[in-house]
Design a protein around this nucleic acid. Structure first.
Length: 878
RNA sequence: GGGAGCAUAGCUCAGCUGGUUCAGAGCAUCUGCCUUACAAGCAGAGGGUCCGCGGUUCGAACCCGUGUGCUCCCACCA
């Protein structure tokens, strides 16, 4: 059957993926083999495949498939994260389009819309991962709000509450006025913004001729001021401390206090203190017992407490209050100023520090052991530099704000009575029971009101490696957990080291007394050609599905992986995919050639000296396999891929196949062609983790396969260690061929102009093995071993071999002389430097013996080469 | 403000415990080839004060110091 001119990725990819799944090749159950487990970092259920996913999941797929080739029982668990804020935002937007206001819906109504939405659109990303070829065990697909998972989260909350880790408290939190929810510190991004620093004069209460001037970038918060603060040592203001001034526009009376927190140098050295809207001010307020005047509503508009501008948006007020202050003569000056402002990671609106009652989780006691396992390398971080980052965070860890004012998520299992007394329980019935025990004097309520808030998404994700194996349902003798946990490798982005990685470690140690994974590989950040981070907001993230359509999934994987050095950022460029596609085509063409060779008549005669090709290639294969193994262990996937690429393109196609190829009408030696097939098969195994589809296709094209003989589940043949002598003979062969081709180009000899090749007699033993191939590849009429030099020839040096060739065509002596002269100059310089070293007493005294021996060998080789070149030059100029 | 990292060919990067057969690879460039697997190819070639400066050493791309430029993380200075 004639093969198609080119490989058709689309067709093959769909075919093979469905086939693999049908055969259940990705499904794992515990058995006697060692396990190699990865749990996917669950993408948001609302997510769409982007470059970050492509990188992250390609890497995981390589690891999984490679482990499978090495005989592991591999298990890669897929799933999605309910992503409360992101998903809720999408559902709210969807409702708005339908003309429905979230606030008019009951909780249950809203949730039913959300679930409906999730069922319809959620998990698109999982389908996209199939396109990419990911060998995920779909039978295990998990979701962080599955019933069992939900229960696990609630149980953990209850457990931590009982242990005293969880408490309720009023604190300054990051408030997202758009999502109307609290955010943890990690969900706030600080950006530099151009603002105005407004200098505002506050008049003294007792003497309107006196005033004090403060500087602020948030003039709208003036209405919530509780004090003005100066440094106790600031001579300028000493006389004002203890007196009162008036808040502009509303003339509320506030004290002037002193505190060492103040930076005398900054602004005017006076700080307006607004405890409700700034964390530092809040702390100052606590210290000085100042009232908290909350002038903001939860949507970012001004509250009644502000007295003015009520229900106007904060930014609108900022503009307007400056005008009003100006009109009343309160503005001293306005300066341009750049400062850091917090933005919501999810909604990208400016965060307001806001005081509110939230649920908190104490971190310190859990952080300690979690820090230790990383510092002791029980969990290994790649690259290790992230250990530092991790340590810094863990040593300065703060309590975790775990409540969110959302509906989509795990509802906090706190139950309140009319007076706001609460108990913690999974269900209302249990809550009532506990309530009775806690408050024996109180009347038994018939109903309790459950907390309206849900838990931070990460409060569920941190259980991921445990709960995907049914931890909460069966804590003891859980066969799955015992077998798959701890997982082997976590592949994730460095930006969620605190959100997720650290917390999974804590949860694993807290609930299983075991680390959740043995190693963590942090991939780089994907950037575009200009080095900008790929992001939705910049719109510089390419459309992956379109790329898969254009290039094929194998090519996209190639493009992503070839550009991802271990631990560095990845500068993504479509040209990598182009290269991958071309590579696929190259492999396809190699297959076509193999097919032609396979259809040839087979000779059973003993192979000639071209048999060296097979012997040599076996060594190269062994060599590269070892290197690739090492690279993959160290997550140097781009290096590994480059090596396989070169092994296939250069060693197999450009050298090996050319060496074993016979002329069109000539038969091929039976063993040789069988070996060529076998090597190709081995190459497909080696490449399979990177490019699974084309390799499977080729595997089946090489020969008819029995049922179930598929590349995806095959294993590597036994590794052998390469023979260094044969490898160096192969190198020599390549170098001589290249040198002769070079001579041909420089001497204007056509590739097929016949030549006679002269090689040094002294190396005959070494050269004889490669002589047959050499002759064929160089179109040499004859190979002659000589001891001296050859008149009227072109000489060239390969390593320490002096070679000559003659041709019926005329040799351009001037060019040859020029070449030799250049070589000679270099060698003389080289020799000089070697001699300098060897004549240096200190070098001889200090250097290792093998280094000295090496230098001596260099000297002798150089001397020999110089002798040969000079001899040739004499001959030529004669 | 604190911490981490990077700087090697036009571009993206390798260069392990310091030793000129280590200054490398892939793209890109140039030259010659429609050689019957592949022009998405084949063959060959050119290209680098290894960021500047100083030091350690017999010897530095590699170690130390310093300067410059870039990146990332953390951090509440109005």
């Amino acid at each position: 059957m004639a093969l198609a001119k080119n490989f058709n990725p689309q067709e093959a990819e769909n075919k093979w993926y469905n086939y693999w799944v049908e055969k259940g090749y990705f499904h794992s159950t515990p058995n006697e083999k060692p396990a190699y487990t990865i749990v996917i970092p669950p993408p948001n259920v609302t997510g769409v495949l982007h470059m970050g996913h492509a990188l992250n999941n390609s890497v995981q797929d390589v690891l999984i498939r490679y482990a499978k080739l090495n005989g592991y029982n591999t298990c890669w668990v897929p799933g999605t994260d309910h992503a409360s804020i992101a998903t809720e935002a999408k559902v709210v937007a969807m409702l708005r389009e339908k003309g429905i206001d979230k606030n008019t819906l009951s909780r249950d109504e809203f949730l039913s819309y959300a679930w409906e939405w999730k069922e319809k659109y959620g998990g698109i990303i999982l389908q996209q991962l199939k396109k990419l070829g990911c060998a995920l065990d779909w039978n295990r697909t998990a979701f962080t709000m599955d019933a069992d998972y939900y229960r696990a989260v609630i149980d953990v909350f209850i457990d931590l509450y009982k242990k005293g880790h969880i408490y309720r408290g009023v604190k300054m939190i990051n408030w997202d006025p758009k999502a109307k929810t609290a955010l943890s510190d990690e969900e706030v991004n600080h950006k530099e913004v151009n603002s105005e620093l407004v200098y505002v004069r506050y008049f003294m209460e007792d003497d309107s001729a006196e005033s004090i001037t403060i500087a602020t970038v948030r003039p709208e918060t003036i209405l919530g001021d509780a004090a003005v603060c100066v440094h106790p040592n600031d001579e300028r203001y000493k006389h004002l401390v203890g007196r009162y001034c008036l808040v502009p526009l509303i003339n509320r009376r506030i004290p002037i206090i002193a505190d060492e927190y103040i930076d005398i140098e900054f602004g005017t050295g006076c700080l307006k203190v607004t405890p409700a809207h700034d964390i530092n001010d809040y702390n100052l307020g606590l210290k000085h017992s100042l009232p908290v005047i909350d002038t903001l509503n939860e949507d970012g508009t001004m509250s009644e407490a502000a007295q003015l501008y009520v229900s106007l948006d904060r930014f609108e007020v900022r503009k307007q209050i400056v005008q009003d202050l100006q009109a009343k003569g309160h503005i001293v000056k306005i300066e341009a100023y750049t400062n850091q402002v917090g933005f919501s990671e999810r909604t990208d609106v400016v965060i307001e520090p806001r005081l509110s009652m939230q649920w908190w989780c104490k971190m310190e006691s859990m952080a300690k052991p979690a820090l230790e396992v990383v510092m002791k390398d029980e969990i290994k971080f790649y690259p290790p530099k992230f250990k530092n980052t991790y340590r810094h965070w863990m040593e300065n860890i703060k309590d975790w704000c775990i409540s969110r004012q959302l509906r989509w998520g795990h509802r906090i299992p706190a139950w309140y009575d009319e007076q706001g007394q609460f108990v913690i329980a999974a269900t209302e019935a249990e809550a009532i029971e506990i309530y009775q025990q806690h408050f024996p004097d109180k009347e038994v309520p018939t109903t309790l009101r459950q907390d309206e808030d849900v838990l931070d998404t990460w409060f569920s994700s941190w259980l991921w490696p445990l709960e995907v194996f049914g931890w909460n349902q069966q804590k003891e003798k859980n066969r799955e957990l015992d077998y798959y946990y701890p997982t082997a490798t976590l592949v994730t982005a460095p930006e969620i080291i605190f959100f997720w990685v650290a917390r999974m470690i804590m949860a694993g140690l807290e609930y299983r007394k075991q680390i959740p994974f043995q190693q963590v590989y942090f991939t780089g950040i994907v950037r575009d050609k200009q080095g900008r981070k790929m992001s939705k907001s910049l719109g510089n993230s390419p459309d992956l599905l379109k790329m898969i359509d254009d290039f094929g999934a194998d090519a996209v994987r190639f493009g992503v992986l070839i550009a991802s050095p271990a631990g560095n950022d990845l500068l993504f460029d479509e040209s990598g995919c182009e290269q991958g596609k071309i590579f696929g085509n190259k492999i396809w063409n190699a297959l076509k050639l193999l097919q032609i060779l396979n259809e040839k008549e087979r000779s059973t005669e003993a192979p000639g000296s071209e048999a060296f090709a097979s012997v040599w290639f076996a060594q190269r294969l062994a060599e590269v396999r070892a290197e690739v193994d090492q690279d993959i262990r160290e997550f140097k996937l781009s290096e590994a891929l480059k090596k396989v690429y070169s092994l296939i393109w250069d060693d197999y196609c450009s050298w090996y196949l050319e060496w074993i190829k016979t002329a069109q009408d000539q038969p091929i030696q039976a063993n040789q062609i069988e070996k060529a097939n076998m090597y190709f098969e081995e190459l497909m195994k080696l490449l399979h983790p990177f490019m699974p589809f084309i390799t499977e296709e080729i595997y089946h094209q090489i020969r008819e396969r029995a049922e179930g003989d598929d590349l995806v589940i095959t294993q590597f043949s036994k590794a052998t260690s390469p023979d260094a002598d044969i490898l160096s003979q192969g190198e020599l062969l390549k170098r001589i061929i290249t040198a002769i081709r070079d001579v041909r180009v420089k001497q204007n000899l056509k590739p097929k102009d016949s030549i006679t090749l002269y090689l040094p007699e002294a190396h005959k033993q070494n050269l004889e093995a490669i002589e047959g191939i050499l002759q064929k590849q160089c179109f040499a009429e004859a190979i002659v071993y000589i001891t001296g030099s050859v008149p009227d020839s072109v000489s060239f040096v390969v390593g320490n071999l002096s070679c000559y060739l003659t041709s019926a065509r005329e040799i351009d002596h001037s060019k040859q002389i020029e070449e030799l002269q250049k070589e000679l100059t270099y060698l003389q310089g080289f020799l000089e430097s070697v001699n300098k070293k060897l004549n240096n007493e200190k070098f001889v005294a200090n250097a290792k013996p093998e280094v000295i021996a090496g230098e001596e060998k260099k000297r002798n080789d150089a001397l020999e080469k110089i002798r040969v070149i000079q001899e040739s030059l004499t001959l030529l100029s004669a």
